[in-house]
């Protein structure tokens, strides 16, 4: 397995020591690592296991249980498309298909150039705005018709050098 770079290792240590005396620290550590590095590397699971007196296997069990943690590096830009019932009825699948075409990513995967990760998510609790998509933390409602999500993606591609064509 590829070795993790020094700055990521330091970041992991910092996160682990920040949470280690709090109750139920595993999830908080994992959230922070996922946010900071875009995924949970093996070294992070080892550090967390050591600090919380668990085995690496146990930490891995938690990582694979929750959909928001990944063990593969995430893309630079993250797109979530809700496929909960309300969004699905309002055309979320059509929206998702168009996004996949634009980003060249697979569902719950990352594009080859590492630019985009596209996740199909469960209900985001904004059914009144269905269908809903989130691009880099920004929520778009009524996204099937508005065309704003597609626009946002095209802007990112233009900004990043237009490789996606």
């Amino acid at each position: 397995m590829e070795k993790l770079n020094q700055s990521s290792l330091l970041k992991i240590k910092e996160i682990v020591s920040k949470h280690k005396d709090e109750p139920g620290p595993t999830i908080m550590m994992l959230h922070d690592v996922q946010d900071a590095l875009g995924y949970i590397p093996f070294e992070a699971m080892e550090e967390i296991a050591l600090a919380t007196n668990q085995s690496v296997g146990e930490v891995y069990g938690v990582v694979t249980f929750y959909a928001q943690f990944t063990t593969q590096p995430k893309g630079k830009h993250i797109i979530n498309v809700c496929i909960g019932t309300a969004c699905y009825v309002k055309g979320a699948q059509l929206l998702l298909d168009r996004i996949l075409e634009l980003t060249h990513a697979k569902v719950n995967g990352t594009s080859h150039d590492g630019l985009f990760s596209v996740d199909a998510t469960r209900c985001l609790g904004a059914c009144g705005l269905a269908p809903v998509a989130i691009v880099d933390g920004k929520v778009y409602g009524d996204a099937e018709k508005s065309g704003l999500v597609e626009k946002a993606i095209q802007e990112i591609i233009a900004c990043e050098g237009g490789k996606q064509g």
Binding site: F42, S55, G57, E58, Y60, G61, T64, F65
Partner: peptide, 20 residues
């Protein structure tokens, strides 16, 4: 005290095995 075997994934896909 090793905890090598553990539940991996969830729901129908749950399996028991070592890390990764």
């Amino acid at each position: 005290g090793l905890g090598i075997l553990n539940f991996i994934d969830r729901g129908f896909n749950t399996k028991i095995g070592p890390v990764y």
